[in-house]
C-alpha cells in the first residue's frame, strides 16, 4: 500500500509541475531552453529557501525528477559543501552534487551519437 501511495504522490506532483511547464509553453513565447533554464534556477531558489526539500520529502521522485529538483540538488550540494569546506564549497558544491547527472548525460549521449543516426520525424 505504501508503494502505491508513493507512486501516486510522485505521479500527481510530477504531473502538476509538468503541467505548469505546458502553460508556459502555450501561453508565453518562452522557448523550451528558456523554460529548462528557468526551472533549474527557480529550483535553486526554492531549495535555498527550504521549500523544495519539503516537497521532495513528500513526493520523492515526483519532485526530484523534474528539473526543479536538479536546481534543488545544486542548492543542497552547495549548502553541504560550504558547511564542510568553507569558502571553497561555494564553487565546488553545485557541480559536485550535479556531477552524476551531468556526466551520465554527456557520456551516454556521446555513446549514443557513435551508435545512432538522426532520422526524419514521423
Amino acid at each position: 500500500m505504501d508503494v502505491l501511495l508513493s507512486l501516486l504522490k510522485a505521479f500527481l506532483v510530477g504531473g502538476a509541475l509538468c503541467a505548469v511547464g505546458q502553460i508556459l509553453i502555450d501561453r508565453t513565447k518562452l522557448t523550451p531552453a528558456r523554460i529548462l533554464t528557468s526551472y533549474v534556477v527557480i529550483g535553486v531558489l526554492l531549495g535555498a529557501l527550504g521549500i523544495y526539500p519539503k516537497l521532495v520529502e513528500f513526493a520523492g521522485a515526483g519532485a526530484s525528477v523534474p528539473l526543479l529538483g536538479f536546481g534543488n540538488l545544486l542548492a543542497k550540494g552547495v549548502r553541504e559543501a560550504v558547511k564542510a569546506d568553507g569558502a571553497l564549497g561555494i564553487l565546488t558544491g553545485g557541480f559536485t552534487a550535479a556531477a552524476a547527472g551531468i556526466a551520465a548525460a554527456l557520456f551516454f549521449s556521446l555513446v549514443a551519437a557513435l551508435v545512432f543516426k538522426p532520422k526524419e520525424k514521423g
Binding site: D26, P118, K119, E120, K121
Partner: peptide, 20 residues
C-alpha cells in the same frame, strides 16, 4: 529539405519539441 532546415533554423531532428 525538412532536415537541413530543422537543424539550421530550429532544433536537432531528435529533439523533443512541440510545434504550435
Amino acid at each position: 529539405h525538412f532536415c537541413t532546415a530543422e537543424r539550421q533554423f530550429r532544433y536537432p531532428l531528435e529533439y523533443g519539441g512541440q510545434r504550435p
